[in-house]
Nucleic acid binder design. Sequence first.
DNA 1: AATTGCTAAGTTTTT
DNA 2: CTTAGCAATT
Length: 688
Amino acid sequence: MLDVSGLNPQQREAVTTVQGPVLILAGAGTGKTRVITHRMAWMLSKGVSPGHILAVTFTNKAAREMQERVNKLVPRRRSTPGEPAERPTLCTFHSLCVRILRRHIDKLGYKPNFTIYDEAEQVGVVRRILAKISQGTDKVKPREVLAVLSRIRNASPEERLVIDPTTLALARHVQRGYESSLRAANAVDFDDLILLTLRLFKEHPDALEDCRSRHRYIMVDEYQDTNGSQFELVRLLAGATHNLCVVGDDDQSIYGWRGAKIANLLDFEKYFPEVKVVRLEQNYRSTNNILRAANHVISNNPRRRGKQLWSEHGDGEKIRLIACEHDDAEAQFVVDEIQVAKTIRGIRWGDQAVLFRTNQQSRPIEAALRKAGVRYRIIGGQSFFDRLEIRDFLAYLKVLHNPHDDASLLRIANVPARGLSDATLERILTASHERKSSVFAAMRHTDVQEQFQERARLCLKDFLRFLEDTRHRLETSPIGQLLAPWAESVMTTVGYWDHLRGTEKNPEIADNRIRNLKELIAALDAPEVNRSLPALERLGESLSDMALDTSRGADDEDKAGDEVTLITAHSCKGLEFPHVYIVGLEEGLLPHTRSKDEGTLDEERRLFYVALTRAMRTLTLSYCAARKKYGQLTPSHPSSFLRELPMELVDHETSAARKPVAAGQGKSLFAGMRDRVAQANGGAPAST
DNA sequence: AATTGCTAAGTTTTT
DNA sequence: CTTAGCAATT
C-alpha cells in the first residue's frame, strides 16, 4: 500500500478519493503536483490498471515532470515478454488528441499524415484570405481575426452572442476560406486538434467507446485554463463513470484572453452534482507575510471559490516596495540587489527571479545584468522556433512529409531563389483555389503548368522533381535509417547553407544560424521517437512533437549554471523562486491598459496574485515615476493594485536610499561578504 | 528579382 | 526605439 502519511489531511483525502468526480481546489504552492502524482500511485496500488489512467496537463513540461515523479513513486513494473508494461497516459490535451487523430482522422476525410499549423502559419493563411477579400481596403489585423476565429469555433452559440456583430460577420466570412484552406492542405491547427476529436467522438461513437474503455480514470491539471471544447472533450471521456478528478485554482486563471473559461471550474457542480470538493490551503512555499499580502489582494475579486493560504514557515521578512525614477534606475536597483544578495547573504543567482508583465520590460534588466556581469536566462520570449532558419527548415520537412501543406510549401517554394517568382506563385495559388486543391496538386497539373512560359515551367518542374525524389528517397529508406543525414542532405541539395551565408552579411550570425540548424537536425533522431516506424511516419512524429512542444530544445536549462531567471508573469505560473523581484508595478502595465477596455481587471489581479505567490522567502516590488515608451520617457503612476497590499506588511523605500545596516549585524555581514568574495572569485562585485 | 527606404505600429501566449 | 510590411527603385 502506498504510504500517504506524509500528506496533510486534505491532500490525503484528495489522493484517496478515487471513484466519482473530485474537484481539488489547489492554491498556489499547496503541493498540487504531489497530490496528482500520489493519487496516480494510490490508484495503481489499489489495483487500477495503469493503462486505464489518463492525466491531462496543459504543458509538456508539466507532463514530463509528473511522469518523472510518478516513476519515482511507483517502481516500473517488469514487462512480461511480448507484453510491454503499460504505463498511465500522461500528456497534454493536444498530444492526446494527436494520438487519437493519427489513428482515426481518415474517418473525417483527412489523410493520416496531416500537418499541424502553428500560429505563424495560421496568420499566413488568414493574411492571404484578407488580402483576397478586402483588396487592401480596411486594415484588420490577421492576429485579431484569428483570435475571434478561435473564439467562435470554441464557444457555444449563446457565448457567440456576446461578440460584436461586425467582427463576428467578418470572422465568419474568413472562417469559410480558412477552413477550406486548411482542408486542402491536409492541415489542422491547435483548435482543430480538439474540435476534430470532438467531431470524431460524435460521428463515430465506436471511437469514443474505444477511448472511454481505455481511459476510465481521468485527471485534468490546471483545470481553470480549459476552454469550452476542452471541457466538452473531458465530459465526453468521463462518460458514464464520472471518474473525473480536476485540479485547479480559480484565482490563478490568467488565460481568459485565450479562451479559457473559469466558469468550467466555478460551475463544476452544475455538470457533476455529486462532486467531492477538496480545498488545499496549506502552502509549503512561502512565508506568511507573502501569503497574507496575496490573500488580501485576491480577496478583492468577485466570484471566487475562496480560500486562505497559510504556511508553517513563519512571518518572514516584510515585502519591500521600491519607488524608482525611471526604468533604467529600476533595472539598476534590481541588479544591485541581486548582487548584494549574492555577496552578502550568499544567495545564488539561480535562486533569484525577475518577473514582469510584458516581454519588452526585460530589455533594460538584461542590459543592466550584462553590464554587471550577472548570468541570466530568459524564459519564453522569442522562441527558438521563431527563428527564420528554423522555420524554413521545418517548412521543408513539413512539405516533404505532407506535400499538400500549402503554408509550408509557399514558404520554401522560392527559398533559396529557384526562379519561382511571387507572380508565379500567386498564379498557382489562384489556380489552387479555383480547383479547390492544394498548391502542390495545382503545380502538378499540366493545365496549370501550361499557363507559364518555358522558363518558369522548367523551374516549376525542377522543384516538383526535387520534392518527389527526396520524398521517395525517404519512403524507400530501410527501417531504422536515421533522419538526420537525410535532412542534412536535403538542405545541401537545395543550397540552403550557401543561401544563409549569402543573405546574412555578418558571417558570425550566419555561422550561428547554421549551428542552430545542425543542432535541430541532430535532434530529429531523439530517442523518444519510435525507431521501428517507417521513416516517413517517424518524420511525422518528430514534426508533431516539435509543433506541440516549443519549449523543447531550449530546455536543457535545469542543469544549467547559476543564472538569474527573467520571466513574464504569465509564464511563471507553476514555478517558484526563493527571492522574487516584480518590476513595473504601474498603472497601464499591471493592470494593463487593455484590460480596462476589455473589462478584465479581475484577470489582471489574478496575474498579480500569481506573481506574488511565486516567492518563497523574499519579495521585492518596484515601480517607476517614468518609463521609456517607444524611446520616449513618459510619466507613469503606481499600480492601483499596490493599494490593495496591507500596509503593515510592506516597507516602502526609494531606490536611491540605502538601507542602513543595524549596528550589531554589520561585522558578521561584512565578514561573510569577504569570505564569499574570496572563494567565489568569479562573482562580480556589486557595482557602486 | 533583389535591395533599399519609408511608414506605421507596438499586451500577456502553455498548445 | 525597435521591427515588420510594403512600395519604389536599381
